[in-house]
Amino acid sequence: MDDAVVVAALVLVAAAATAAVLQRDPARQAIVLSLLGLSLAALFTVLQAPDVGLAQLAVGSAVTPLMILLTVRKVRQRKGRPK
């Protein structure tokens, strides 16, 4: 019955990845990617790989969204779009 948690985590990762791909706006995509990172961390942990889960968590919760959003901001500035 341990498999139930693994199956739940796998389905969540698949759904999150699909949702991330279907987002068109990069700023909104950053939010879904953050959730994908959290789901992956959960998946790695239930597959008994906590070191990998911790690495995914560390990178995906703050650093990656920050880089994506700063890049989006810079690109919008160059295009002259009002923020």
Binding site: A19, L35, S39, A42
Partner: peptide, 8 residues
């Protein structure tokens, strides 16, 4: 987490 993904 499922509904959170839906909301996000």
């Amino acid at each position: 987490l499922g509904p959170c993904l839906w909301g996000a």
